[in-house]
Design a protein around this nucleic acid. Structure first.
Length: 437
RNA sequence: CGGAGUGUAGCUCAGCCUGGUAGAGCACCGUCUUCGGGAGGCGGGGGCCGGAGGUUCAAAUCCUCUCACUCCGACCA
């Protein structure tokens, strides 16, 4: 993409409404614009990141045997009356009346909707287990939206739902999601720590929150040092095998959110204790028959008797992750994208657009990179070098390929790694080989 | 929902206390110089001062109401 044609409205100054670093950087980098409190439009750069995160989430869900569907944002109130949550959910739920005076709502989550689908479609235990998910916009009318996309009212969430005939089956699904979540966050360059959690309004008795560590996190958390070094992506996971020992390896270790911390246990850990700040990016629940019983979602078991479905639900805050990743990865100059979610891999900077040699070299590099399948943002604007450096650092692409008349004289370019700030000069061919590797 | 703030140009803000021709920097347009880390000169365009009432000869400025947004707290993917 040529930057001269790209819609990238960067800001030199920070808009007054943004306090938290990820929000400031997302506005300055032209990723989002606020529409109203807690509601955002996604501009091209931000949308690319959102899609990349969504892609990783989807790949890991698919790998775990979860099947993608898409449910509506607008749901009928009657479903929620069946589960009893129409009254329980309170003013956080956005209630709507259609032209026929029917009560509707903008879904804050989808347990009722999926249970309704399931009860009309599945009759036998033989059709179980099933794991389904969708990635859809949610609306929760938060009392106080803040922190940009980290706590918006409208947000993109991946929510999965598991259906099993008995509790051991439900726990197998729970474990699949547990492991899939660890892999998902790790692929985004995040350290996510699973912590035992209260299940809140969703209900149920087994639940874990996944918190990523970031200096600017909302709450203080404490955990065993081993969490920091865990590396799951490297290992192949057999989702059909027994995952319990893997999950136990995590749940056996100490990890607690602010209000769950245990001073005695922490003292025991000694040097193995890590205290950090955390942002919740995922939450998994086992809630048994809470919805299946109230909504009549039953199957015939092996003995012919009807039994209520054992269910769980599993959420990842996809849009929140965009902000969370920035919280975890930035410096004074701007964002530092992990390569897996970066909107482009390479920024190509033509420092002198009125120099024929620079233009020819850049056009050639641009074509070669694109030909090799590398996503590249080519800054071909007739701006001063300083503006280009500043913008490129701000938007945080992992690699910057800097081409100027000074280097070209000796046949070299600079390859700057955003993360380290190192910018060695090297022959053009070496640079291309490195960036297309 | 309790508490505290802020709404003036695209952005950051001054002006308001003490009413009297609406400002600065950046951004934008033109031009000249500059040309490897957010340059400088000259010229220019852009605002019902969030909205509605009121007081006054006169309101961005004083008063009342309202709307929006932000921050702190309690709650949440």
């Amino acid at each position: 993409m040529r930057l001269s044609a790209y819609f990238l409205p960067t800001l030199k100054e920070t808009p007054a409404e943004a306090q938290i670093v990820s929000h400031r950087l997302m506005l300055r980098a032209g990723m989002v614009r606020q529409s109203s409190a807690g509601i955002y439009s996604w501009l091209p750069l931000g949308f690319r990141v959102l899609k990349n995160i969504e892609r990783i989430v989807r790949e890991e869900q698919d790998a775990a045997g979860c099947q993608e569907i898409l449910m509506p944002t607008i749901q009928p109130a009657d479903l929620w009356r069946e589960s009893g949550r129409y009254d329980d959910y309170g003013p956080e739920m956005l209630r709507i009346t259609d032209r026929h005076e029917r009560d509707m709502l903008y879904g804050p989550t989808n347990e009722e909707q999926i249970t309704d689908i399931f009860r009309h479609s599945v009759r036998s235990y033989r059709e179980l287990p099933k794991l389904l998910y969708h990635i859809q916009w949610k609306f929760r009318d938060e009392v106080r939206p803040r922190f940009g996309v980290m706590r918006g009212r409208e947000f993109l969430m991946k929510d999965s739902y598991s259906f099993d005939v008995d509790k051991p089956g439900a726990m197998r699904a729970y474990n699949k999601m547990f492991i899939a979540y660890l892999r998902t966050f790790e692929r985004m360059g995040l350290k996510a720590i699973p912590m035992r959690a209260e299940s809140g309004p969703i209900g149920g008795d087994t639940s874990h929150e996944f918190l990523i560590l970031a200096d600017t996190g909302e709450s203080e958390v404490a955990c065993h040092r081993d969490f920091i070094d865990a590396d799951l992506v490297a290992s192949d996971i057999d989702y059909e095998g027994d995952l319990q020992h893997l999950v136990d390896g995590f749940t056996d270790k100490y990890a607690a959110t602010d209000d769950e911390r245990d001073p005695a246990k922490e003292k025991e850990l000694g040097d193995a204790l890590v205290i950090a700040r955390g942002i919740e990016v995922g939450h998994i629940f086992y809630f048994g028959t809470k919805y299946s019983k109230s909504m009549g979602a039953v199957v015939a078991g092996p003995d012919g008797e009807e039994t209520a479905l054992e269910m769980g639900s599993y959420g990842i805050g996809v849009s929140r992750l965009v902000g969370a990743i920035i919280e975890a990865s930035h410096d004074d100059a701007g964002i530092i994208w992990p390569e897996s979610v970066a909107p482009f891999k390479v920024g190509l900077l033509n420092l002198k657009t009125d120099d024929d040699g620079c233009v020819a070299a850049c056009d050639d590099i641009y074509a070669k990179l694109r030909g090799a399948g590398v996503e590249v943002l080519y800054d071909d604007r007739p701006e001063r070098a300083g503006v280009k450096f500043a913008d490129m650092d701000l938007i945080g692409l992992p690699w910057q390929l800097v081409v100027g008349p000074r280097g070209l004289k000796s046949g070299t370019v600079e390859v700057k790694e955003r993360k380290t700030g190192e910018r060695p000069e090297m022959p053009l061919e070496t640079a291309l080989a490195q960036l297309t590797a």
